[in-house]
C-alpha cells in the first residue's frame, strides 16, 4: 500500500515537472536586440560518443570559450550518440525548444540523415550560430600501388567497375563514399557498379590499405596525415577548392587540377535549439566570433589541420541551403534516394 502511495507521489511529481517545463518554454523573452549573458551553465551536445570528431569539436570550443573567458559560465559537454546524430537532433527539437542552455555541434550528416529519410527533422529546425571550420576528403593509395594518379584509377574503374576496391571510414551514403563517387561519376564511371567497403574507423581503414585488402581510400585529410608523413600512403587528390596550407598535404593536387570540377567540403558548425531566445543567440554568436578569431582557436585548428572557415549564423544558414540542395542532387544521382 505504502508503495502505491510513493508511486502516486512520483507520478504527481512527473506531471508537475512536465507542466512546469512546458510553461517555462512558453514564457516570452524580452524581445530586444540586447545580447544577454547567461547565468547558468551552457551544455554543448556532441551527437556522438566521446572521442569522436563531433566530441573533439565540442570539447575544443568549450575549452577556448571558457579558458579565454569569452563565456563566463561553465560549459560541460554531453554525449548523445545514436544514428549518426539523429538521436541528438530529435532531443534538440523535441525537448529543448526555446531553451537557452544548450548548443550542439554538427557536420554534413545533419543534412544527410534528413535527405535519406532517417528523420523528419532537418537543419531548418535548429538555430545556426556559426560555421566553425572545414575539413576535406583525400583520395590515396598504398605507396607501392600501381596507380600514380586519380586518372589511372578512374580509367581502371571505367573498364571494370569491380576491379578497384574503394574503402572509406563511414557508411555508404555518407561523406567518404559520396566524395569519391561524386568524383568518379564526373569522370563517367558507372558508379552503381562500384563496390565500396566501409570500415569502422580510420585506423581499420589504414590497416586494410597497408595489408592490401583495398586499393583506394577516401577519407578525411586529418585521418591520413600520419601515414602520409611516414610515406605509407600516396595521396592522389584532395577535395578542397584550392591547395591546403598544411605542409604535409600542400603538394597534393585538388580535384580541379586533375580535371574534375568539383569540391567536397566537410563543414563543422554549431547550432542552438529551435526558437533560441534572441538575447542568448546574440551573446553566443558574439562570443564564438571572438573565439574564432583568437590565437588559441587558430592554434587548435592548426593542430588538427582543420581549415578555419568561420561564418556567422545568417550566412551559415544560406550556405546550408546550398549544401542541402547539392547533397540532395548527389544522392539522387547515385540512386541512393528517390
Amino acid at each position: 500500500m505504502r508503495l502505491k502511495k510513493y508511486g502516486l507521489i512520483a507520478l504527481l511529481l512527473v506531471v508537475t515537472m512536465v507542466l512546469a517545463a512546458g510553461c517555462g518554454g512558453e514564457k516570452k523573452e524580452a524581445a530586444s536586440g540586447e545580447s544577454k549573458a547567461p547565468t547558468k551553465p551552457i551544455t554543448i551536445i556532441a551527437p556522438n560518443g566521446a572521442g569522436s570528431g563531433w566530441d573533439l569539436t565540442a570539447r575544443s570550443v568549450a575549452q577556448v570559450l571558457t579558458e579565454k573567458k569569452f563565456v563566463t559560465v561553465p560549459m560541460p559537454v554531453e554525449n548523445r550518440a545514436g544514428g549518426g546524430g539523429v538521436v541528438a537532433l530529435s532531443h534538440m527539437v523535441e525537448n529543448l525548444k526555446g531553451n537557452d542552455q544548450n548548443l550542439i555541434v554538427y557536420s554534413p550528416p545533419l543534412l544527410l540523415v534528413n535527405l535519406n529519410g532517417q528523420t523528419k527533422y532537418s537543419y531548418k529546425d535548429l538555430t545556426p550560430i556559426a560555421r566553425l571550420f572545414s575539413d576535406y576528403e583525400l583520395f590515396g593509395v598504398y605507396k607501392d600501388s600501381k596507380f600514380h594518379s586519380l586518372d589511372e584509377v578512374m580509367d581502371a574503374l571505367k573498364k571494370d567497375p569491380k576491379s578497384v576496391k574503394i574503402g572509406g571510414a563511414s557508411a555508404p551514403g555518407s561523406m567518404d563514399h559520396l566524395a569519391f563517387m561524386m568524383a568518379a561519376s564526373k569522370k563517367g564511371v558507372n558508379i552503381k557498379e562500384v563496390p565500396y567497403i566501409s570500415f569502422q574507423s580510420g585506423g581499420e581503414l589504414t590497416a586494410a590499405l597497408l595489408g592490401g585488402s583495398i586499393d583506394v581510400i577516401s577519407t578525411s585529410v586529418g585521418d591520413t596525415l600520419g601515414q602520409l608523413e611516414a610515406g605509407n600512403v600516396r595521396a592522389l587528390a584532395v577535395t578542397s577548392p584550392e591547395r591546403l596550407k598544411d605542409p604535409r598535404v600542400a603538394n597534393v593536387p585538388t580535384l580541379k587540377e586533375v580535371g574534375i570540377d568539383e569540391t567536397f567540403e566537410v563543414w563543422r558548425g554549431i547550432f542552438g535549439p529551435p526558437n533560441m531566445p534572441e538575447g542568448t543567440k546574440k551573446y553566443l554568436t558574439e562570443a564564438i566570433e571572438k573565439m574564432a578569431k583568437s590565437d588559441e582557436w587558430l592554434a587548435i585548428c592548426k593542430k588538427y589541420s582543420w581549415v578555419p572557415t568561420y561564418q556567422p549564423g545568417d550566412q551559415f544558414g544560406k550556405y546550408l541551403d546550398d549544401q542541402n540542395k547539392l547533397m540532395g542532387d548527389l544522392l539522387r544521382g547515385m540512386n541512393l534516394i528517390k
Binding site: 508503495l3 510513493y6 508511486g7 512520483a10 507520478l11 511529481l13 512527473v14 515537472m17 512536465v18 517545463a21
Partner: peptide
C-alpha cells in the same frame, strides 16, 4: 522492478 521503472521515468523530468 516497478520502482526501477518509476526511477527511469522520472529521472529526466524530476
Amino acid at each position: 522492478l516497478l520502482m526501477a521503472a518509476v526511477f527511469i521515468e522520472i529521472l529526466e523530468p524530476a
